[in-house]
Design a binder for these strands. Structure first.
Lengths: 276, 276
DNA sequence: TGCCTACCACAACATTTGTTAAATATACAG
DNA sequence: CTGTATATTTAACAAATGTTGTGGTAGGCA
């Protein structure tokens, strides 16, 4: 059992107001195209589908690192699409232990399940500073049901998420600490690359050792032990709140990583049947 | 790390031929109604939906305990619906360690994800003797797409499955062995009751201690230790390949079980929008 | 500038859980 | 009945991982 840590609630209320992103402007059109790209990855969408997506209401939000995007138990009214930055989901036991049960990268819908589940069973937090667009749940539902190919793409997205959860269960349940750490690095970098967000397979994972521990069922102390030896072996380099793979093949070997479960490179079988 | 165990492949080929269930006859109509009941649990279906479900091709199969229903890597052509008996999913590491990542009870679709994912990332095995009906994947796909309310029910089914995976991650990652064992008992009995398969919350879980260990990230030896003390405390009774809860409140306390993640008692929001 | 906080490093020690191996039950098949 | 396979029980021991606590460093902020 890891030490019981109180995770401070550094939620939105105590944070300063919305801060627009100074470096570059992001507009609605760009986001629509991001969403279209995401949902087309395994599924072709037609012009009408594109139109429906472009018609969604979008509400930009900036979240500081460690703030909540979704809270457990809340009846959610909006669905967040990650535009910039990383997020994660967490669940807490009654006695305050935390598990981080997934990582989300730009281009991920963070809580598609809220379209059909009435209350969230977990929290979603910003890992880094995050820009998201919020879309009303009701619109997403209508989109899914009137544009079947889009609905199907969202469904498939959830299926792959499920496959990732299963792999994490294997990771935490049956791999030793060293392999677990290696595995999360492999997965993260592979997903980043697949999403076109990184040219190389050298993840730059901006997590604290405590967060890493919570994602892997370990304590931060033990994660520290593992990372130090990995660095000594030349597998990774590290900074504060950040880990970088320097020897992909080595890390991959330690993790016994097989990306099959990510279901990349899968076109979908069959054409979408439109109406009955 | 648990001992490396070779799980014998006692798959269908070496087993005797299909043995029809002597005790009672099961017919197509009955199964259709089971499927309709399952998919109506959180979603109302109309007469047309019912008709579509009744029109599915169904192929009865009997699986002996420990035989495979689905194998990792196979491109699946059929979707199994569990009629009788229990099944489980497993994933293996390259070096032969196993994790059991879910339990399936009668009324569950065992591999709905195969509708849209081209190869399975895990195995499905019969925990007890099982009767299933197999439905061609292509028909399921057409059903989902032509009967939107049915598709939506299948989608929701997958969402809840995802919620269960997340809870298992919390369980294995952050609860001690004793709570883990208690938690799986709570979940199983709650699901059985919710599915109308058991009047009481006293699960009768027909798993070996080794299987239990694989589902909880523990070794069978340690599961044995836990179960013995639980029996001594009057929380459970046991037989070979079977555990029964005798003190529900006690077990629940040990597990710190909160069934929110099962999303029982959820009617779905909104009417299904039919066509565009 | 200097304080505060978050994060990381590290050590000594404690505990849970895993390992190995053998003995004992129990069910089933012949 | 008897043999065989499967499952459980148990013990002695080993190892991985958790616990506690202290100190260090970097960066944000007053």
């Amino acid at each position: 059992m890891p030490s019981l840590v109180r995770y401070p609630d550094r939620g939105d209320p105590i944070l300063p107001e919305f801060v627009p992103n100074g470096d570059r402007t992001i507009d609605r059109n760009q986001i629509s195209e991001m969403i279209i790209a995401k949902l087309s990855r395994r599924n072709s969408l037609d012009a009408e589908d594109h139109l429906a997506i472009r018609g969604l209401s979008m509400d930009f939000r900036h979240h500081f690192a460690s703030s909540y995007l979704v809270r457990e138990g809340q009846p959610p009214s909006r669905c967040a699409f990650l535009v910039e930055g990383y997020a994660y989901r967490q669940k807490l036991t009654i006695d305050g232990h935390r598990t981080i049960c997934s990582l989300e990268v730009p281009g991920d819908f963070v809580d598609l399940q809220n379209i059909y589940l009435r209350e969230s069973d977990h929290d979603v937090l910003a890992l880094t500073d995050v820009i998201s667009v919020d879309i009303p749940v009701a619109e997403m539902r209508v989109l899914a049901e009137t544009a079947p190919a889009v609905g199907r793409a969202m469904w498939v997205d959830g299926l792959i998420e499920g496959a990732i959860f299963r792999e994490w269960l294997l990771n935490i349940g049956r791999r030793n600490a060293r392999s677990r750490v290696a595995h999360i690095l492999c997965e993260f970098s592979t997903r980043l690359q697949a999403a076109g967000l990184a040219p190389e397979l050298t993840a730059d994972l901006p997590m604290t050792q405590e967060q890493l521990g919570d994602a892997l069922g370990l304590t931060s102390v033990h994660v520290n032990r593992i990372l130090r030896t990995m660095e000594a072996e030349g597998l990774v380099t590290r900074g504060k709140r950040q880990i970088t793979i320097t020897d992909w093949q080595g890390i991959r070997r330690v993790a016994t990583f097989n990306p099959r479960y990510l279901h990349l490179h899968q076109e979908q079988p069959g054409k979408v049947v439109k109406n009955r």
